[in-house]
């Protein structure tokens, strides 16, 4: 049962921003994350600002430069099933298809998926955790088998829950954001913030700022992309370990590889070590083994999630072999 809130459904982006730019306002796109957060009372919201009258934010369209522009309100299902996405950006289509459950994919939006709150059971549960304004992160010394092995800095060990952000980041996507100070572009890779930067926020969006579109650059020749998610059950589950991969091949050698991990860190985690291990190389057994070893360099596993080290190695191996076969 949700607490009280007022509700408004503006018909223009300008009004939306005006309403959203007040204390205690929350955005409702698909609502799948927001309503859960309200039920759990993890944030104080007294006004819900609905985006559902903003039809122009639902469209998926080609851009003049040959890329793709996805409205922030496109549902996850629309992204997963869009022919252009499937053909040109298969990693994104695969990521979208792995999100939650069919009903939630039918309802949740791409913009919402990028902005969702973490799924840590302490954060969502009746624990006054650091991220919610309490004193400690319960996961550091608690039941942390599903938590981060990178980027937590022993401050807050959430993993970022999105399955679309890692492939979007790997594909070099940007979000367009509109706010009280006007519009700007943000690379998806730079959208999310680490606990050491700000433990109370998940994104760099400023008060009143809304993601309006997600823009993918032209896919380029010979570009391969994929997303793989290992999970404890096959539907409605978040990643134990996930890998988003985008790379190009040139004469059998990898270039411009971009590798982002899910289930790994409080943000979609870029693995430059893996990128370095394969860029300029042929994807042979040796390079793949080296990349697998590289993926867990600098990892800082907690008491119960060291299994993720070899799990990530395994996923990297499996996916690079698949990429090698596809190339």
């Amino acid at each position: 049962m949700l607490p009280h809130f007022s509700y408004v459904r503006p018909e223009t982006l300008k009004d939306t921003i005006r309403h959203f730019n007040t204390k205690g306002a929350a955005l409702h796109a698909g609502g799948t994350d927001l309503l859960g957060c309200l039920r759990e009372k993890i944030m104080d919201v007294d006004k819900v600002v609905s985006l559902s009258a903003l039809a122009e934010l639902c469209e998926i369209k080609k851009t003049a430069g040959g890329g793709l522009s996805i409205g922030a309100l496109a549902t996850i299902t629309q992204v997963a099933e869009n022919p252009l996405v499937r053909e040109k950006y298969p990693g994104l289509a695969q990521g979208a298809a792995e999100v939650a459950s069919p009903q939630l994919r039918n309802q949740g939006t791409l913009g919402g998926n990028l902005c969702q709150k973490p799924r840590c059971w302490y954060y969502r549960g009746e624990f006054a955790c650091l991220r919610k304004g309490g004193d400690i992160c319960y996961a550091i010394d608690g039941e942390n088998q599903f938590h981060a092995i990178f980027g937590h800095d022993r401050i807050c060990a959430i993993t970022h829950p999105s399955d679309t952000a890692p492939p979007l980041a790997a594909l070099g996507a940007k979000v367009r954001a509109a706010g009280p100070d006007g519009a700007r572009s943000i690379e998806v890779e730079k959208l999310h913030v680490l606990p050491k930067q700000n433990v109370h926020a998940e994104t760099v969006l400023k008060p009143g700022e809304i993601i309006t579109r997600i823009e993918l650059p032209p896919p380029g020749e010979n570009r391969y992309s994929a997303y793989r998610k290992v999970r404890a059950r096959r539907s409605w589950d978040f990643a134990l370990a996930g890998l988003a991969l985008a790379l190009e091949t040139d004469g059998g050698r990898v270039k411009n590889a971009r590798v982002f991990l899910s289930g790994a860190a409080p943000v979609p985690w870029r693995s430059r070590a893996v990128e370095q291990a394969i860029n300029g190389k042929r994807l042979d057994a040796e390079a793949i083994a080296a990349a697998a070893e590289a993926v867990v360099e600098d990892a800082d596993p907690l008491s119960q999630n060291a299994y993720k080290l070899n799990l990530f190695k395994g996923v990297v191996e499996e996916q690079l072999h698949a990429a090698a076969r596809a190339a």
Partner: peptide
């Protein structure tokens, strides 16, 4: 959808 109006809590 109906025109914008705020529904109080």
């Amino acid at each position: 959808a109906p025109p914008e109006k705020m529904i109080p809590a």
